[in-house]
Simulated scan of single mutants.
Amino acid sequence: MTATTFRIGGDLSVRRLGFGAMRLPAGPGPAREASFQVARRAVELGVTLIDTAHMYGWGANEELLAEALHPYPDGLLIATKVGIVRSDSAEGWKHDARPEALREQVEHALRRLRVERIELLQLHRLDPGTPLADQLGALRELRTEGKVGRIGLSEVTVAELDRAREIVDIASVQNRYSVVDRAHEPVLAACEAAGIAFLPWRPVGGGAPGASAELAAVAAELDATPAQVSLAWLLDRSPAVLPIPGTGRVEHLEENVAAATLRLTPAQRERLDRLAPVPGRA
Rank of each mutant, 00 (worst) to 15 (best):
R176Y: 10
R176V: 12
D181V: 01
A183K: 14
H184L: 00
H184G: 03
E185F: 02
P186V: 01
P186A: 10
V187G: 00
L188R: 09
L188T: 07
A190F: 03
A190P: 00
C191N: 01
C191A: 05
E192M: 00
E192A: 14
A193I: 03
I196Y: 08
L199C: 13
L199K: 01
P200W: 08
W201H: 15
P203C: 11
P203A: 10
G206C: 02
G207W: 03
P209V: 11
P209Q: 05
G210I: 02
G210E: 15
G210H: 09
E214V: 13
L215W: 03
A216Y: 02
A217K: 14
V218N: 09
V218T: 05
A219K: 11
A219D: 08
A219C: 13
A220Y: 04
A220I: 00
E221T: 12
E221H: 08
D223R: 15
D223W: 10
A224I: 12
T225C: 10
T225I: 06
T225V: 03
P226K: 09
A227R: 11
A227Y: 08
Q228D: 00
Q228I: 04
V229S: 06
V229H: 08
A232F: 13
W233A: 08
L235C: 06
L235D: 01
R237Q: 13
R237A: 13
R237W: 05
R237D: 05
S238T: 03
P239L: 03
A240F: 05
V241H: 05
L242R: 11
L242W: 14
P243R: 10
P243M: 10
I244W: 13
I244S: 13
P245G: 13
P245C: 14
G246A: 15
G248F: 02
G248H: 12
E251P: 08
E251M: 05
E251A: 15
E251G: 01
L253P: 02
V257W: 13
A258K: 09
A258T: 11
A259K: 02
A260D: 05
L262G: 00
L264V: 13
T265I: 04
P266E: 06
Q268N: 00
Q268D: 00
R269L: 14
R269G: 09
D273P: 04
D273N: 07
R274P: 06
L275G: 11
P277K: 04
P277E: 14
